[in-house]
Every structure is written in C-alpha cells, then in structure tokens.
Simulated scan of single mutants.
Amino acid sequence: MKAKKQRLASLDALRGFDMFWIIGGEALFPPLLALSGWSVFAFGHSQMQHTEWNGFTFYDLIFPLFIFLSGVTLGLASKSLRGLPLAERKPVYGKAVKRLLILVVLGIVYNHGWGTGIPADPGEIRYASVLARIGFAWFFAAMIVWHTGVRTQYAIAVAILLGYWLIQAGFGDLTPVGSANARVDQCCLPGITFRNRAYDPEGLLSTIPAIVNALMGVFAGRWLRRYQGQHGKILQGLVFGGSACLLGGFLWHWIYPVNKALWTSSFVLITSGCSLLLLALFYLLVDVWQWRRFSAFFAAIGCNAILVYLGTSLVNWSYSSQSLFGGIAAALPEAGGTLVIAIGVILLQWLLLRWLYKRGIFISP
C-alpha cells in the first residue's frame, strides 16, 4: 500500500524507536558492557528484561507503547460515526473487523514461528498474542471513539480501570495461579497458554485494560490535532498528562501493584504516563527542533512496524548477519565479535525497511 497522506514525523519516529529494541537493540548492551565495563550498560541490560512479576522496566513499556501509538493515530483522525446511516458505516466496520482478524491470524503465525510452525492440532495452537491484543485494543477503542462523545470516552476509560481493579481485588489473589486472569483463561481461552502457564500474559481478561492504553493515545492524538502548530500548548498538555498518570500509577502501586503479566490498572497508568512523556520528547525533537536525521533512522522502522515484528519470528537475521560479517567478528575478541553480529542484525533489517520507506511502501493490516 503506497501512503499518500501526510504522516506525523514524531509519531513514526517514536514507533520506530519502540520497535528498535525488538529488532535487536536490546542485544547491544552485553557486549558493550564487556568491552567498556561501564555501569550504564549494565543498567541498560537490566532494563531490557521483563520483570518477573510485580515491578516495571523499560522493556515492559514496549508493548503498551505500541498500543498507545495506535490510539494516537485514531485520535488524529477523530472520526465519528454517530448519526450516519448504516450504509455509510458498514464499510468502516468492515475495514475494522478485517484489520482485527488479520492481526489475530498474524499473531498466531508469530507465536508459532521460530522454526516450528503452526501445530496441526487446533488444541495445541496459542491463539492469544501480542498482535491480537493490539488488534482488540485498537478495535474496541475505535468503537468507543466512533460512537460516543469525548466526556463519555473519559468516563469509559476510568470505569474500565476501576472495574478491572475491583474484579481482581474480588478474587483477593494476584498470584500467577490464583488470579482472576488465570481463572478466566483456564475456563474460556481456547488453545494453549504462553509456556503452558495458568494464565496467558495476552489472555482474555487482561486485554480489557489494554483498551485504556489505546484510549490514552486517542486523547493524545486529539490534543495534537486540536492545537496543531501550537507547540507550547501541545508539549504542556502531553507533559502534564504524562506526569499525572505516572503519579497516579505510583500511588496506586502501593495497594494495587504494577504488573505487566496481569496488565493491572496501575500498570496502565504507568505505561500511559511514560508513553505521553516519550511522545512529548519526540514531538520536541522531531516536529519542533526538526532533528530530521535522528527521525529518519527510526521512521524507517516505524512505518513498517508490523512487518519487522513478524520478521523477528520468521527470518533468522542472526544467521544472515553471521554469513556477511562472521569473518570480521571472528577476527575480533569475543565481545567485539558479538557486537559486530548484533549490529549486523539491526543493519540488515534497517536497510530493508529503509528501502521500503524511501519508496513510500507502508505495509499495514
């Protein structure tokens, strides 16, 4: 699909920054630490690991940030279907359902990539996935935006966060086995769960609060559209909103822990706050200060984020990097060789994405 519409440069750059860590950026820290001994690389490596249960690291932000950015795009469009006849609404609904189904199918493909393939037995397929959650969060956020007013949208977001908290608190157990999420997934989720756990981190119940991550993006996108060209006003709103979410999330954490696996409401606030602040930073760097070289590197990744995400499961980039740069890597100390291969993995993917970007080819569901 060749894009003809104007794209928000900071949005594409931030999406690319988000995906950079997925395509191999996280692998840079261990060899850099071994070569330099700098503690900053040790800290960076620690932030590239998911928390085991309660808590928060930068790597936990990557997934909800992508959902947030899908909401920003929705908010920038600011479409409403209220009052339109069914004949005019049906094509929009059809596209939304098609997008959702494609993401669900691609999520299954991704789950069973890595050289294994989708099982022949439907009962052995993992249906829940990162892409499916992105699809459902965007779909329900779109339905809310298309059919309700702004105040109602805020009220729905608050109701989801509070309602989800009450559901989980009602079980009185936020453990992997005893949580409400585990009960629902064991009862109603078809197929298998991630690593056959009692719950699935992308399971049924925890998809509900992810809708709020998308709605937070909608609110940010609407703010960008409303104050287009008023840089100070835009930055002020994003920073204030992000700070308020972070404060609310940290305070809530004391009675309702931040937990990515359960996607707790406090986790939604923390990730939404970080997402808003990152959007403010990228808006400042790219759209205000015009750091085009900085943005071009990440935008090439961000404009085809779904494609590159699937590529991490279906293509052995390490093999390709080793085939091209293995000789150079072998001539260096172990840490240096590891770094060369890691950079090669990123470079090969970026060159392909840059080729698509330069030709205006953006592949999306």
Results as ranks from 00 to 15, higher is better:
254 W>D: 01
167 I>P: 00
41 F>W: 10
310 L>M: 09
147 H>E: 10
52 E>H: 15
228 Q>W: 05
107 G>M: 01
271 T>C: 12
257 P>E: 09
22 I>N: 07
151 R>A: 11
336 G>C: 11
83 G>M: 00
191 G>D: 12
270 I>P: 07
351 L>G: 11
120 A>P: 01
347 L>M: 10
47 Q>H: 11
62 I>E: 00
134 I>L: 15
316 N>L: 02
228 Q>C: 08
257 P>T: 10
80 S>M: 04
206 S>F: 05
205 L>K: 00
200 D>Y: 10
224 L>V: 00
108 I>E: 11
269 L>D: 13
13 A>Q: 04
61 L>E: 08
305 A>F: 09
308 V>N: 02
338 T>W: 07
336 G>L: 06
193 T>F: 10
298 F>N: 02
135 G>Y: 03
322 Q>I: 00
13 A>V: 13
64 P>Q: 15
106 L>A: 12
58 F>A: 15
272 S>W: 06
321 S>A: 15
242 G>L: 11
312 T>P: 11
73 T>S: 11
181 N>Q: 10
257 P>R: 08
342 A>L: 03
221 G>W: 03
65 L>M: 12
168 Q>I: 15
253 H>T: 07
97 V>P: 07
207 T>M: 12
356 L>Q: 03
14 L>M: 15
350 W>I: 00
284 L>T: 05
212 V>D: 09
249 G>A: 01
151 R>H: 15
289 W>V: 01
337 G>Q: 02
88 E>M: 09
210 A>I: 14
42 A>H: 08
161 L>G: 01
310 L>W: 01
130 V>G: 06
247 L>W: 02
355 W>V: 03
121 D>G: 02
344 G>T: 01
257 P>Y: 10
197 R>L: 13
50 H>Y: 13
219 F>D: 05
220 A>G: 04
356 L>R: 04
57 T>P: 03
49 Q>R: 09
26 E>S: 14
85 P>E: 01
133 R>N: 01
276 L>P: 06
305 A>H: 05
126 R>H: 14
355 W>D: 02
336 G>T: 01
132 A>P: 06
44 G>S: 10
242 G>E: 02
323 S>C: 09
150 V>S: 09
192 I>W: 13
194 F>S: 08
278 L>Q: 02
134 I>S: 06
12 D>M: 05
178 G>D: 09
46 S>M: 08
342 A>S: 14
65 L>T: 08
119 P>H: 15
95 K>H: 07
68 F>M: 09
3 A>M: 14
105 V>S: 14
11 L>Y: 05
142 A>F: 10
106 L>M: 13
190 P>I: 11
156 I>Y: 05
120 A>F: 06
192 I>N: 12
221 G>K: 04
203 G>L: 14
258 V>T: 13
174 L>T: 01
56 F>N: 13
210 A>D: 04
159 A>K: 05
327 G>Q: 00
273 G>L: 06
22 I>P: 03
355 W>I: 03
262 L>I: 04
230 Q>K: 14
238 L>C: 07
323 S>Y: 00
338 T>R: 03
